[in-house]
């Protein structure tokens, strides 16, 4: 199948939203792959971090928002530290999560977390996980 690309992709609301929320220029990424090379979460991701940006550049909204990768990203800032173009990929990942969360769709329902887990993990883990995974 051919992917049709047109001005609808390159000037989409989705792309604008990502840039607005992240404050990053999506086109600044030149696809060197250094982010993916160092990402500690890469093996659990279905789409690698640089490819996430590439898909945003191509306006592939559905594929990006449906990916597991954006939720696996743990905001460790390794990529941010090393990106030669100064792209803050952690912010881009966050904006992609936020686009979903702001539709009131949780990635993790807080009520589904068991009592056992709640009593086991430190507060900072709980609070941050809810901040990242629920609306």
């Amino acid at each position: 199948m051919r992917t049709e690309i047109s001005i609808k992709n390159t000037k989409s609301k989705f792309l604008d939203k990502v840039e607005e929320l992240s404050g990053e220029n999506i086109y600044a990424c030149y696809q060197c792959g250094k982010c993916s090379a160092g990402c500690p979460s890469i093996s659990e991701m279905d789409i690698s971090p640089n490819e996430i940006i590439r898909l945003v550049q191509l306006g592939e909204e559905k594929e990006v928002l449906n990916s597991k990768a954006i939720w696996i990203c743990a905001s460790c800032f390794t990529c941010v530290t090393r990106c030669p173009k100064g792209v803050d990929l952690a912010k881009i990942m966050e904006s992609l999560r936020q686009i979903t969360l702001r539709k009131n769709v949780d990635y993790v329902n807080p009520l589904s977390i068991s009592k056992e887990v709640l009593s086991q993990v430190p507060q900072i883990a709980l609070v941050s996980s809810l901040r990242k995974f629920s609306s």
Binding site: R2, S6, E51, L55
Partner: peptide, 15 residues
């Protein structure tokens, strides 16, 4: 235009 984007492995069509 029938091209490719080898970065994503996609076949691309642009009008």
């Amino acid at each position: 235009v029938w091209g490719a984007d080898t970065l994503t492995g996609r076949k691309i069509e642009i009008s």
